[in-house]
């Protein structure tokens, strides 16, 4: 991720998400809106900005998303807890890396992250959180492509 090489259990997070992907995405009926991929794609973020944007996105998921994703399904809740705790652990490492490498967010990427927040604020909180969780593979695909 730009200057940051953070070891995180991507395979574990992927496995956790794969187990609940269909369930979570089926709770998001809105096809025409995306939190992460439209109108701007994560794949257009400059490599020098990736470390900073990734840290912002992990903070976004930890602070805003997971807490509003509680469901009636115990299995889904346990997987969400597993992903949330993995994100917490990864964010801590990303944060340390950002400080060590003085990763700065460029103007373009700051704009991109503001767009993500605007997409999120444009929906009611539960819908926005569930949609964001359902887009976890978009984030993971981008992070792996950035490695």
């Amino acid at each position: 991720l730009g200057a940051c090489r953070v070891s995180m259990s991507m395979a574990e997070i992927r496995a956790g998400f794969a187990a609940i992907k269909a369930n979570i995405q089926s709770r998001d009926p809105v096809r025409s809106l995306s939190i992460l991929s439209h109108p701007h794609s994560l794949h257009k973020v400059k490599s020098s900005d990736r470390c900073c944007i990734a840290h912002h996105l992990f903070t976004f998921y930890v602070d805003k998303v997971f807490r509003h994703c509680r469901t009636e399904d115990s299995f889904v809740n346990r997987k969400i807890s597993s992903i949330a705790n993995s994100f917490l652990s990864a964010r801590r490492k990303l944060g340390q890396c950002r400080e060590q490498n003085n990763c700065v967010c460029g103007e373009e990427s700051t704009e991109k992250f503001k767009q993500i927040l605007a997409n999120y604020e444009g929906l009611n909180v539960t819908s926005a959180a569930m949609k964001s969780l359902g887009e976890l593979d978009i984030l993971l695909d981008w992070m792996e492509k950035s490695r």
């Binding site: 096809r31 025409s32 809106l33 995306s34 991929s37 439209h38």
Partner: peptide, 8 residues
């Protein structure tokens, strides 16, 4: 068909 996130 539709591209997810695009309203058409």
């Amino acid at each position: 068909y539709a591209v997810y996130g695009v309203g058409k």
